[in-house]
Each structure stands twice: as C-alpha cells, then as structure tokens.
Nucleic acid binder design. Sequence first.
RNA 1: GGUCGCGUAGCCGAGCGGUUAGGCACAGCUCUGCAAAAGCUGCUACAGCGGUUCGAGUCCGCUCGCGACCUCCA
Length: 499
Amino acid sequence: MPVLHLYNSLHRKKEAFEPITPGHVGLYVCGPTVSGESHLGHARPYITFDVVNRYLQHLGYRVRYVRNITDAGHFEEEGREAEDKVAEKAKLEQLEPMELVHKYTSLFHKGMHLFNTLEPSIEPTATGHIIEQITMIEGLIAKGYAYEVNGSVYFDVKKYAEGHNYGELSGRVMEDLLETTRELEGQDEKRNKVDFALWKAAPPQHIMRWKSPWGEGFPGWHIECSAMSAKYLGTQFDIHGGGMDLQFPHHESEIAQSTIAHGCAPARYWMHNNMITINGKKMGKSYNNVIKLSELFSGNHPMLEQAYHPMVVRFYILQTHYRSTLDFSNEALQASEKALKRLWEAKEELQKLTNESPVTDNSTSDAEQKVVKLLGELEGFMADDFNTAQVLANFFEMVPVINALKNGQLPKDAISAASLAQMKESFTRYLEDILGLQGMQQNTDSSKLDKVIAILGDIRRDARKRKDFATSDAIRDKLAQDGILLKDEKDGSVSYTLQ
RNA sequence: GGUCGCGUAGCCGAGCGGUUAGGCACAGCUCUGCAAAAGCUGCUACAGCGGUUCGAGUCCGCUCGCGACCUCCA
C-alpha cells in the first residue's frame, strides 16, 4: 500500500503522513457556527474531511475525528462594540439563543446525514467547554502572554512573535500586520493592533454570558478549538483541517495560544480546503450570494434551475480536488447529475456480471489490460493528497467496459474472472466506502412497482411480437408521462427508471 | 497597499518535464419496428511574451486578467 502524502499548509508542500501514535490518527476539523443555516460552501469541508476520515480508516488507522459546534457566538468585529452574533439574531427572530443554536445544529446534522458523511467521534460544543477555555486563558496570563483590560483578556501577539514565528501558517509578516490591521474603535484596550481576544467582557445587553475571573463575558473566537482539541486529542495531534478562509487569523491564533499554553504546536499537519465560488466570487455570508442547503435540495432559490440531490452535490464536490476552487453553476451540477447516474447504473450492472469461462486466458485482451491498469492506479491517486477527481476518472473509464460486457459488445470472457471480482470489490470499496457515494434512488420499497412494470412489460413485449406497435408505444408513452421510463434491453427484457 | 494563489478545449474540471485524463454538451456511425440506453469514432486545449531544457500546461522571469486572506466567514 502506498504511503499517504498530504499537502501540509504549514510548510506549503506535500509530506508523507506519519501519525504520532502508530495506528491512530487524531483529526480535528473546525465545525460550523450555528447562528444560521449551512450553505453550499459549508458542504465542502465536511465532505472533504469525511473522505479524509474514510480513507484513513481504509488505510487501517483508528481515527478519532473531532468536529466542534460553535454555539457560543462571536463578536462581529474585533474591537468594535462587542455584539454577540447569536444574541443579535435571536432578538430578530424572537428566540432564545439556545433555541436558535439548537435549530441550526439540527439542520446541520440533517444536511450532513443527507450527504452521507460519517459522524465525528466527538462533536464538542463551545458552550459546553467554557471552563476548559477559562483554564487555558488563565494559563496564558500566568505565562505572561495574555493580559486583562476592563474585563477582557487579549493575547499578546507581539510578545509571542519575539520568540516564535507568528505567521508561519498563513505566511503573514509581523511588520505587515502591524501596518495593515484596520483602525477600529476600541483598539485602545489592546497593546497592539494584532492582539486578539481570548475573553470578552459582555456588555449588559449581551444574552450569552458566563462568569469568569475577569467578570461576566464570553470566550474569544479562537480559544474554543484550542481548548477542545487539546482535551480530546491531546496537546499535540495529527491533522487539523478547515476551510482556507480560516487559515488567518483563526488557525494562526490557535497555533500561537496553544504553543504557549502547551509548550508545543497543536497539529503536525494542517489541511485547508479551497472555497466554492459562484460567478467567480467566494460563496459567503458577506457576499450575500449563498445558496442554503435546504434551497439546494428543494431547488427553491432564484439562481437554481432545479433541485439537486445531495449525492449529486457530493459527487460534484469530489470531482474537483479539494485544494482547487470550485465554481457553482447549474450546468456543472446538471452535468454531475447525469454523470453520477451513469456511473451508478454501471456499478449496479457490474454486480450482475459473471464470467462463466474463468479458464480462458484473456490476459492479453485490451479491455483486461485497461481494467488492470485502472484498478491498480486507484490506491496511488488517493494516497497522493486525496485526489478524488482522478479516482472518479478511472471509474468512468471502466464504465464503457461494463456496458459493453452487459450488451455483448465485448465477449463475456473479455475480462478475467479475477479482474471482474476485483472490479466489483473496487467499485464498492472506493465509491461507497471511501468516497461515500450512494445511488440517487429513493429507499422506498419498490418490489410491488417492479411487479407492475413487469406485467406491463410482458404485455408490451407480446404486442411488439405481433407488430402491434400502437399498443406497445402507448404503454411506453403513457408511463413516460408519469415519469416512468421504459427501456428495451438487448436480451428482450424490459427495465425502467424513475424520473 | 501587503501576503498568497489561480488562468487548461463550448461548459465543468485532472495534470506537478516526455503517454488520449475524466465528466457534460455537440457531430457521425453501429444496434433498434421506433425510442431510450449502450458501443465506436470525431472535436485535442493549456492567458500572452521571453528564458532554461534534447523535450514545458508542467520549471524561471515579465505582462495581462481573476480570486482569496489581511474583518465574522467553510
């Protein structure tokens, strides 16, 4: 089995993956802020890291996958009058903060389920770890890298940078940061503009608030991930993932505070997925161009020409490498829908294929050689920084072979029994287990419908034998009007698909 | 303004110095009572200009265009 190489954002190059503890992987991924409904952009990291999780397990690792829920709410803009995002929206919607947070957490879970992502091992919430966060902040103050002002606590970035490389992950330069950080109100509390909040004093109108050694307040934006990853994965763990937009300042700050608090950098490998764009622009709240997951699945959005099945979205995301931007368009989604359907039909046909003449020597058959080559490349593609696009391309190259075998355009024994078995195994292992894809058919019991169609199919077949095409076409056309598409197979049988 | 990244055929997208990526669309052919599906064939591109090399989407430089981050952001 090839060695897994992954692109480490920390060093900006691909590196061989070596876990800290042999056989085990600690994986932390920044989860959603549940102050609103998840959108298409959010789907990318969770699907990307779901595949990372699945592939690591395929390699035999025992993975502890921690993905947090940010439910504490952060202030809108650093330094500006602290406004708890969650509290603000709760007022608008006349809801309790926790009610709101629960609602969006549930919706998030529903979306993740529809995308067929495996559940994380632990899904800690920020509100459930206030004590851990306070403890960590106290440690930072004790070490002289954090200071309290008016009930708020800030991390002293300039001091940190004297002995450490602040900007290592994101490529920032301290001098630049000191120059370009925006001039904002309330900056005077901080010793330097680059300092970031660990704890914020809560103004009176703030709904979410906790007691702390510095008065009532709420945690700063970065501390939860550091506190929770250390608690569940250890002060140093293997992989930390998230969207590219979190690289700075979120992840950079995590590194700084964890390094001081624990005496070591938190993660050895940092992975960042690229953004989903729409008309070339990043999909994001601030651009006002988001398509929420529920809108995507229902088609209920001005930019959507139709509804898209969650599996189509998953497939569409996996067709692109996770570090490339991925541009949304109806055309692209529709292409993915057709492609996934074709791939899945071939996958199902494959399982029915048999080679009754296993003794035939067909090692020189073109198809056989092609299949052997395509199958052999899969593991290497995945091991090369999770190149799901190449994996899918190889499977698509096997589709014509499967269809040709099925339709008799290739002799039954063109593929050896051994290769056929390997194909069946690989289609299931890679497409289902590793890429987490599923068919798009509803899981409803269709056995009764199968029988009805079989009867109609028999009637139609008899009519065709009598050259009574008026009857045979009527059956097909009427069913088609109700979205049941009949197909005459080469062997004389009739199959159907639902639209 | 600073830092980083991208620009591949009609569209979406792999590619990390030497072979047809793949998908969707389109055209032709085969099969078919007709459809549909399927198979085969075709369309063969790397923003521009220089450079390195026997050989460059692939490395280097410059130019143009686009984007991300620097503010909550997946």
